[in-house]
């Protein structure tokens, strides 16, 4: 698969589903060298954070370029901080745009949260209040991001342990209103969904029934850690059955342009990462066999 074929823009009506990137893996410093060495055929695409690569050179950068020759790259950021009251960091967005354009990305994505507060940037994702005011704040910012990047944009549901402020609505309502009003895509992280459903005791099926399935462009599957009285989203453990079950359910409801196994830390050897990619593919192929064209992929 060439990187251009994956990035071709489709017609408007097909904005969210007109891509077939397939099943892939999050590219990390820890797996980069092995991916270059083995270029595993289990993977259709790789997901990368542009902020790790723009303005750099050296070994990791060259590995990235080599991988981008082989796999389409799905770009996924952590720094837009759509929730913050500070103006969007336009320099960052321009850097992203300048960097990603060489790789014909199909879309860009980031999280529905704060990743900076009062202008101080950090790398954790803090939840927004589920309020009308927050929706009205976030929606035009997402539109600005799409304008500056000149790319479709998908926003990701985050995991959380508190609901700051007094929620005016349920999580599904908040996420749905944001994507509908911003008219953007949804990156559904099924691990985050599971973690929140346990931490706040809501029903995953209810959440999915209310989510606009036609907007799902991108899926994350990941692991979490079980603490004494809550689930901590680490993206650093093996993926557990209930999370695979949610993937299976979503795949039975809609087609999935990209499914990424996302491991942020505590990475096992590459074969174990690939086993989870194979598992994701298996689940999606079963859904296909059941009549839903869930994912095209390159294979």
């Amino acid at each position: 698969m060439s990187k251009t074929s994956a990035g071709q823009k489709k017609n408007q009506g097909d904005r969210f589903k007109g891509y077939r990137l397939g099943v892939g893996l999050g590219l990390r410093r820890e797996n980069s060298e092995d991916l270059v060495k083995y270029k595993p055929s289990e993977i259709d695409c790789l997901e990368a954070a542009p902020e790790n690569y723009f303005g750099t050179g050296g070994k990791l950068y060259r590995e990235f370029l080599e991988l981008a020759e082989v796999y389409p790259i799905v770009f996924h950021g952590i720094s837009t901080s759509v929730g913050s009251l500070k103006p969007l960091n336009r320099n960052y967005l321009k850097e992203v745009r300048a960097f990603v354009k060489d790789f014909s990305p199909a879309w860009f994505s980031d999280h529905l949260c704060y990743s900076s507060v009062m202008g101080a940037q950090f790398h954790d994702l803090l939840p927004l209040p589920f309020t009308e005011e927050a929706i009205n704040h976030v929606v035009p910012r997402i539109q600005q991001i799409q304008d500056v990047l000149d790319l479709p944009f998908a926003i990701e549901n985050i995991s959380c342990y508190v609901h700051p402020g007094e929620p005016e609505m349920k999580e599904w309502e908040f996420v749905r209103e944001v994507v509908e009003r911003a008219d953007c895509g949804l990156l559904l992280d099924v691990n985050n969904l599971y973690v929140n459903s346990v931490n706040f005791g809501f029903d995953v099926e209810e959440y999915l029934q209310h989510m606009p399935m036609e907007r799902i462009m991108h899926i994350h599957v990941a692991g979490h850690r079980v603490m004494d009285d809550f689930l901590l989203d680490t993206h650093g453990e093996n993926i557990i059955d209930p999370v695979w079950k949610i993937l299976e359910r979503v795949a039975s409801l809609t087609s999935l342009p990209a499914v990424i196994v996302e491991r942020d830390n505590n990475l096992p050897p590459l074969p174990d990462q690939l086993a989870e990619v194979r598992m994701a593919r298996q689940i999606i192929e079963n859904a296909n066999a059941a009549g839903v064209s869930a994912v095209g992929g390159a294979k």
Binding site: G83, E133, G165
Partner: peptide
């Protein structure tokens, strides 16, 4: 505490 202003200031604390 529910306004975005209050909540962002709270997160900073």
């Amino acid at each position: 505490m529910s306004s975005l202003k209050e909540i962002e200031a709270f997160w900073e604390k």
